[in-house]
Design a protein around this nucleic acid. Structure first.
Length: 479
RNA sequence: GUCCCCGUCGUCUAGAGGCCCAGGACGCUGGCCUUUCAAGCCGGUAACACGGGUUCGAAUCCCGUCGGGGACACCA
């Protein structure tokens, strides 16, 4: 029996939760849950210039909002704690020392400035820079320097050779040693660099499968060399397709606002929809489009993930969001709508109209924000702003006469219900021998200010008796 | 520039040699329904990048070309 699956998501806390990261996390999470494995969350916070506690929190918040739970990680200390790399410095030091002692790594005294200058020259010449191995055979520090100033470099084996691995998603990939160079494992201050910390932790945390974005395939090679040097068996690897922006470039924080998981929350997209959208990028299950978390748990498998990058498609996200707004229980949607109303200064909690409002508006809205906007403009204030075009067309001439008739009938109506109200429209239209539209549209415009709304009966109920009559009066007397 | 990966409708995808003159979804679009807008239902639009092979037969296998993306840091 193979060892139980252990997968991980290892973000660097240098900003909000990235949508690509969220999908990587989701897939790892699903796979772990599905086969009873463990999903580890590890913070790779070794970039001292950019890592912040706020970012740690932002990532945690994002994952929580999406409902992606980790089995081990921050707040869930397990047997492999700690889960912040900055708390594991001793471990890295120990392994670095060992590699130096074995002649598999060495101290390098070259300055960053020097190297950058060389890199520039190389680039200008049209080639890629490779560390020339200046300090590779050095045994003593240069004059005036000491070991504490040195970064530690991995020593690539001499001679020809190649590294390869069989990626679970991409198949076998090979790279020749000559394409690799002596990379920096650890900075002078003892803080590890990505390729080093990552390997040490993945191994020590008994990770059996590393599933990450395709941008990491090239870094797999130096990592593999390290596993080899340490005498460790590397985990399996699966490199997931990238998510591209509308410009077909990798979704980046700088260029693409949609890369931030939380902007979608703020826009009124629900986690069900975002998860649903994102899981379908690079993965599918038959002809299923609206896929619940439970179904993902049942169906998702890494072996079905594709190899081609997917382009972000905002229309489909919106469509899915509406599907989910319609599919979730009304009470749930009401609950989620509340904060959006609140943001508009509306305290609607407990308002008896909320459920009807959601039931009618979710049929014609793409986001919670859309619903809130309509609600705020039409149902939670007194008076209405008339759209000029709509008013000109529907609140003039004969239309006003019809509206006056409606007003009279309405005022005398004993019961303010959808059925009764719709009955009024029918009654007036028959009495006046005009189509129902002729009667309904003027009411609609008087009530909402424009030509679109749910059914006229429902709209009247939502606006309420007194306010409806007031708005109709205002329409009748306008100008 | 070098290395790596990828290449089916505009977009997300199904397709693991004959079931495919290529299926589904979003979008766009025609119609139905209808008191508006939606929603829903029915229909339409539109793709195997190109060129060589292999094979009785290729979207599916091989090679090349072209195209796209990614990586080339003391970032992750």
């Amino acid at each position: 029996m193979p060892p139980a699956l252990r997968v991980r998501f290892a973000p660097s806390p240098t900003g909000y939760l990235h949508i690509g990261g969220a999908r990587t996390a989701l897939m790892n999470f699903l796979q772990a849950r599905r086969q009873g494995g463990t999903f580890v969350l590890r913070m790779e916070d070794t970039d001292q210039g950019r890592s912040t506690p706020e970012s740690v929190q932002a990532i945690l918040d994002g994952l929580n909002w999406l409902g992606i739970d980790w089995d081990e990680g921050p707040g869930k200390e397990g047997p492999y704690a700690p889960y912040f790399q900055m708390q594991r410095l001793d471990t890295y030091r120990k392994h670095a020392d060992q590699l130096i002692a074995e002649g598999k790594a060495y101290r390098c005294y070259c300055t960053k400035e020097d190297l950058d200058a060389q890199r520039q020259v190389a680039e200008k010449a049209g080639g890629a820079f490779k560390y020339p191995g200046t300090c590779r055979e050095r045994t003593e520090p240069p004059a005036g320097r000491n070991a504490a100033d040195a970064v530690i470099r991995f020593k690539m084996p001499a001679g020809d050779g190649s590294v390869s691995f069989t990626d679970k998603a991409l198949g076998t990939i090979t790279k020749t040693h000559s394409d690799l160079d002596d990379w920096v494992m650890m900075r002078a201050d003892g803080i590890p660099v990505y390729n080093f910390g990552c390997v040490i932790d993945d191994h020590l945390m008994d990770i059996t499968l590393v599933a990450r974005g395709q941008e990491h395939v090239n870094s797999t090679f130096p990592q593999l060399m390290l596993y080899q040097a340490l005498g460790w068996t590397p985990p399996d690897f699966a490199h997931l397709p990238l998510i591209l922006g509308p410009d077909r470039e990798k979704l980046s924080k700088r260029k693409h606002p949609e890369a931030d998981v939380m902007v979608h929350k703020r826009n009124g997209v629900m986690p069900e929809a975002l998860l649903n959208f994102v899981i379908r990028l690079g993965w599918s299950h038959g002809n299923d489009e609206v896929i619940s978390r439970e179904q993902m748990l049942e169906w998702f498998d890494f072996s079905d993930v594709g190899t081609t990058s997917g382009v972000w498609n905002p229309e489909k996200l919106l469509w899915l969001n509406q599907q989910w707004m319609k599919q979730l229980p009304v009470e749930t949607v009401v609950e989620r709508l509340l904060p959006f109303l609140e943001a508009k200064g509306i305290q609607a909690k407990g308002d008896p109209r909320l459920e009807t409002l959601v039931r009618t508006l979710r049929e014609r809205s793409n986001t919670l924000e859309d619903i809130a906007t309509t609600a705020a403009n039409v149902y939670f204030r007194s008076g209405i702003t008339l759209d000029e075009k709509a008013a000109t067309k529907h609140l003039s001439g004969e239309s006003l006469n019809l509206l006056r008739k409606v007003r009279e009938t309405l005022a005398a109506l004993p019961e303010w219900s959808v059925e009764a109200l719709d009955g009024v429209v029918k009654q007036v239209s028959e009495a006046s021998s005009v189509g129902m539209g002729k009667v309904a549209q003027p009411i609609r415009v008087a009530l909402t200010g424009n030509t679109t709304s749910p059914g006229i009966g429902e709209t009247l109920v939502l606006v309420g008796r007194d306010e409806s009559l007031l708005r109709i009066d205002a329409a009748l007397t306008r100008g």
